[in-house]
Write a protein that binds this DNA or RNA. Structure first.
Length: 790
DNA sequence: TGGAGTAAGACACAA
DNA sequence: TCTTACTCCA
């Protein structure tokens, strides 16, 4: 293919010795320990390009797996830039995306309808709730969320209901519901995310010809972010790894931040042992950050005990110090970072090179408000994504009903939306009828009677008519018809703030349009190939139709380039393909992409990205590290890794901030500065506000502040008081307490001190007092027993 | 019976 | 803040 490309091809230029070694490793199993900013994606993509360019393999012989669509796309883009290959036809994608592709090709063997649909987390939860109601499960004792967690967790361990160990009566009940849930999904022809993985794994495990086929096909299997794989994903990878394959795993144990959803860092050690990995290469040279940032990251992560051990180094100078800011309130914090961001923009930093990171999505609002008020363009990642919005989900439900009338989840979502006189009572009766008849809700409608029955029949007739009407239309036309006939647009037009929703619905048409063109099929395409390369190979044998699993051997490299070909045998309707796309791609890149805007996201979402300037906000005990992680040591280590990820996102400037008070969940919280500050090297930091003693009171200059010790915060109770930002001067002392600034007071624990400032009134009154032996404290006058000293 | 308005509780993340 | 349960009214 590219015979002129020698071992020292231009591809390998600009690689450091470790990267070079990793890229050109012989065909055997390897583990690459790649630190943050060490060029991990580069190594992965160059490795694929090198394997192809040296003619060792063809594009059909590689499988590359990532966790996010973003990472998969990045890999494809970079690869396409290096080599003239049709990356779209290659097996590069997310775990779930590839499993989906696999199951589509073998749906019959997998026991699924060809156009099976995928339940997202929301759908799954509502399916479970529905099931619980039907079977009178006590939702106090078994919250639906918990069951969802339980089911997903079991599947991610590779367990079916019968295989789950039960010790208590509660366990047995949970497994029972798990079993019922499985039956329900099977009946409705839907699969959840975990099922995509598990079903693929089981098919590979139980079907020797299929497994052998893929083993012969994929000579090289490359895995990104290996530290985030769960047990099932690891087992799935093993299915592809035969004697002739090589697995190239890239990971960083210090960036493992998904243990809470089943990721096992231990897979790295298991991999080395079970695959007898001879070559482990560490990439420790960091090309991203200045040393003040890197030193901070290294010092922080050194506090973790369970590590494989790795230290990042850089040739760059120290750069700017890491700036630390303490704010009196979350609003002041937001105000400060908006000011800093504006200053950066004045210094010609592009806005999209400024990232504001936070631990949980709930924290974004204050910052959004501040950015909005300052007229700084910003973009929030995460939160409610395009395909998760209610109006879009409604529209998708109608579309799914067109594709599959037996999709009860979709049926229930829109049976009475827009409202058409079908209430809870009616729906319940319908569900009973369906259950009794063992049929779908759609089919059970026939047996209903009376006025309610007539309403239901009208709904079903409407959808059926829509199906008939959209027959043979393009995807775009189908959606347009659906939007009109369903009454969704009309409904939102009548709503007060429905304009945005209508805009989104229109955007759905665009999304479908770009889906069709992006996938490389013209407007008139009636069918989409499932997988150009895969189908090419499989089509050689009728076995791929799913009945006879005697698949052909594919030792010869697949053709380099297979043009999009509408004539491929196995097809999925554009509608079904689009619905799959909607479930697997949350729609991050939908709308307002490409604007020069400040980037807001959670630390989790920031993984894998890098920016010139990064703000890590809300560094407070209970928030970051989060409350829920503090219970066990491992949780804390994961939080620390999360902080490590946050720090290492920054190239040039890093800002860390925390606030003494924060309005969260409707009430003011008083938070202590995060312990992580104490784990950073002092030489790399620059405190923009005076650093107060850890866990001590505030030494905040202008008198705003609160006691920050955990013990005393309880004494304040609720306070709905909020403060304008930036900090306002303290109110004048309340004479009612009998205290004045400058007065000497006595405290039972802290001894004698001097009142510096007073503020608030009534229950909220507090005093800033300097105790010579204990430093400055903010005390609640309603709680603290203070006696004036003459 | 169904729809709308109001009060109370939850809130890590992502395919 | 957003979602969900409950109550009231047509």
């Amino acid at each position: 293919m590219f015979p002129e490309v020698a071992a020292e091809s231009p591809l390998l230029q600009h690689l450091n010795p470790e990267q070079h070694a990793a890229v050109t490793l012989p065909s055997e199993h390897a583990l690459i320990l790649a630190g943050a900013g060490s060029g991990k994606t580069r190594v992965l993509t160059t490795r694929i390009a090198w394997l192809l360019a040296t003619g060792q393999i063809g594009p059909g012989n590689v499988m590359a797996v990532t966790f996010t669509n973003k990472a998969a796309k990045e890999m494809m883009t970079r690869l396409a830039a290096m080599l003239p290959v049709n990356v779209r036809g290659m097996w590069i994608g997310t775990f779930h995306g590839l499993c989906n592709r696999f199951l589509r090709a073998h749906s019959k063997l997998a026991g699924l309808p060809p156009a099976f649909q995928i339940l997202d987390t929301q759908d799954q939860l509502s399916a479970i709730k529905r099931l619980m109601k039907q079977h009178n499960v006590d939702d106090e004792r078994f919250p639906a969320k918990e069951l969802q967690w339980f089911i997903a967790g079991a599947k991610e361990e590779g367990l079916r209901p019968a295989m789950v160990e039960t010790r208590t009566e509660d366990d047995r009940r949970k497994v029972e519901i798990f079993q019922l849930y499985e039956e329900q999904c099977q009946r409705e022809g839907v699969v959840d995310f975990a099922e995509l993985m598990l079903r693929s794994y089981e098919l590979l495990r139980d079907n020797d010809p299929i497994r052998e086929h893929y083993r012969r096909r994929f000579h090289h299997i490359l895995i990104d972010e290996f530290q985030d794989t769960n047990r099932l994903q690891y087992a799935w990878i093993k299915m592809f790894a035969g004697p002739g394959n090589s697995v190239f795993a890239v990971g960083d144990d210090d960036q493992s931040i998904y243990a809470f959803r089943g990721a096992r860092v231990g897979n790295m050690a298991d991999f080395v042992r079970e695959f007898q990995v001879a070559h482990q290469i560490k990439l420790e040279q960091n090309y991203r950050s200045f040393s003040n940032i890197l030193d901070s990251a290294n010092a922080l992560i050194a506090h973790n005990k369970s590590r494989l051990g790795k230290n990042l180094r850089t040739d760059q100078g120290p750069g700017e110090p890491v700036r630390v800011y303490e704010a009196p309130t979350d609003m002041a914090e937001a105000q400060w970072l908006v000011e800093e961001a504006r200053q950066l923009v004045r210094e010609d930093v592009p806005r999209h090179e400024i990232a504001i990171l936070y631990r949980s999505n709930a924290q974004s609002r204050v910052m959004e408000t501040a950015l909005f008020n300052a007229a700084v363009p910003y973009r929030v990642y995460g939160g409610l994504r395009f395909f998760e919005r209610a109006e879009i989900k409604h529209a998708l439900s109608y579309l799914r009903l067109l594709e599959n009338p037996n999709d009860d989840t979709s049926f229930l979502r829109v049976v009475n939306f827009p409202a058409r006189g079908i209430g809870a009572r009616t729906v319940e009766q319908l569900q009973d009828a369906a259950r009794a008849a063992g049929s779908s809700l759609h089919d059970a409608v026939k047996s209903t009677t009376g006025k309610a029955g007539a309403n239901l029949a009208a709904f079903v007739a409407k959808v059926d008519a829509m199906r008939a009407e959209t027959e043979g239309l393009t995807l775009r036309e189908i959606i347009e018809v659906m939007l009109q006939r369903s009454g969704l647009v009309e409904h939102y037009r009548a709503e007060r703030d429905g304009a945005d929703r209508i805009e989104n619905l229109e955007e759905l048409v665009n999304a479908a349009e770009s889906f069709v063109t992006q996938e490389g099929f013209g407007r008139d395409a009636v069918a989409l190939p499932i997988d150009e390369l895969g189908a090419t190979v499989l089509r050689q044998s009728p076995a791929s139709q799913g009945l006879d699993p005697s698949l052909p051997e594919v030792n010869e490299p697949a053709p380099d380039y297979v043009p999009p070909d509408a004539e491929t045998g196995e097809t999925l309707s554009p509608l079904a393909a689009f619905l799959t796309h909607a479930a697997l791609e949350s729609g991050d890149n939908q709308a307002q992409a490409g604007q020069d805007a400040v980037q807001l996201m959670t630390v989790h979402a920031a993984k894998g990205l890098e920016f010139d300037c990064v703000f890590v906000t809300g560094l407070e005990e209970g928030l970051f590290p989060s409350e829920r992680s503090l219970a066990d040591y491992e949780g804390l280590e994961e939080e620390r890794r999360l902080m490590y990820v946050a720090i290492t996102r920054a190239r040039k400037r890093l800002y860390l901030s925390h606030s003494q008070t924060r309005l969260l969940h409707g009430q003011t919280r008083y938070n202590v500065r995060s312990r992580f500050f104490d784990e950073l090297p002092a030489h790399a930091l620059k405190w923009l506000t005076p650093k107060n003693q850890s866990f001590g009171g505030s030494a905040f200059g202008f008198g705003m502040g609160y006691p920050t010790s955990r013990g005393s915060s309880a004494g304040y109770g609720r306070s709905s008081e909020t403060f304008a930002s930036p900090p306002v001067p303290p109110q004048k002392a309340e004479p009612a307490h009998g205290l004045r600034a400058g007065m000497k007071v006595f405290h039972a624990k802290f001894g004698e001190g001097t009142v510096l400032t007073l503020e608030g009134s009534g229950q909220d009154a507090r005093a800033h007092i300097n105790f010579p032996r204990h430093g400055q404290k903010w005390l609640a006058l309603a709680v603290a027993k203070l006696t004036p000293v003459p």
